[in-house]
């Protein structure tokens, strides 16, 4: 990656703090990787199949892949010149506080657990765990109220979707008992 070796930092800072200030270069790396991935996929494509028309299935991916590589480089130049992406604000967002990585990691974990558990446990139980876990991760500590709300929401959602709206959700062992 050419962007990492872009000369010494202007101020006497450690390499680590320089990297933290320029963490947006990670976005460039990701864009570049994505571009290379798309280009590789395009080049290894087997296009002996019937190609209808002068433009085959490779043209657009090639353009998109090249575009990604180009944008990655341009963005790197922008970041090294001091350009910064503006973090998005919002009603409940306090950008003055440092990012709370622990909450995000917890939420991600809870969500992955839901993806794993929905098969064996069914929606009502897995959904309740998802809501409770998320609320807990977000700082709710009402141990009496939270599980009840979670269970109620999950059961009502299950019945509304499965029975009223005709969108099937897995009932799991709980619904087998009831």
């Amino acid at each position: 990656m050419t962007t990492e070796t872009a000369g010494p930092p202007p101020r006497p800072t450690t390499a680590r703090s320089w990297l933290r200030d320029h963490s947006e270069l990670g976005v460039c790396v990701l864009l570049l990787a994505l571009g290379v991935l798309v280009l590789t996929d395009t080049l290894t494509m087997d296009v002996d199949l019937t190609q209808r028309g002068p433009v085959g299935p490779r043209t657009v991916p090639a353009v998109v892949g090249a575009g990604l590589v180009l944008v990655a480089l341009l963005l790197a130049v922008d970041v090294l010149r001091g350009g910064r992406g503006e973090a998005e604000g919002g009603e409940d967002i306090d950008l003055a506080e440092p990012a709370d990585g622990r909450t995000v990691a917890l939420l991600t974990g809870v969500f992955l657990a839901f993806a794993v558990l929905i098969g064996p446990l069914g929606f009502p139980i897995a959904g309740a765990l998802l809501f409770w876990g998320s609320a807990y991760a977000l700082g709710s500590r009402h141990h009496d109220r939270d599980p009840l709300i979670a269970a109620g929401l999950s059961l009502v959602t299950y019945f509304v979707f499965d029975n009223l709206l005709g969108v099937p959700l897995p009932g799991g062992p709980l619904m087998g008992v009831l």
């Binding site: 992955l112 929905i118 809501f131 977000l138 709710s140 959602t157 979707f161």
Partner: peptide
């Protein structure tokens, strides 16, 4: 706020699962 954003995650999960009934879609 914990209930609000937990609810958003919950309904997002319901929506993604309802698309095709695949756990992979959730990932």
């Amino acid at each position: 706020r914990p209930y609000l954003y937990a609810g958003i995650l919950f309904f997002a999960a319901v929506g993604a699962y309802a698309v095709g009934g695949e756990a992979l879609d959730l990932v």
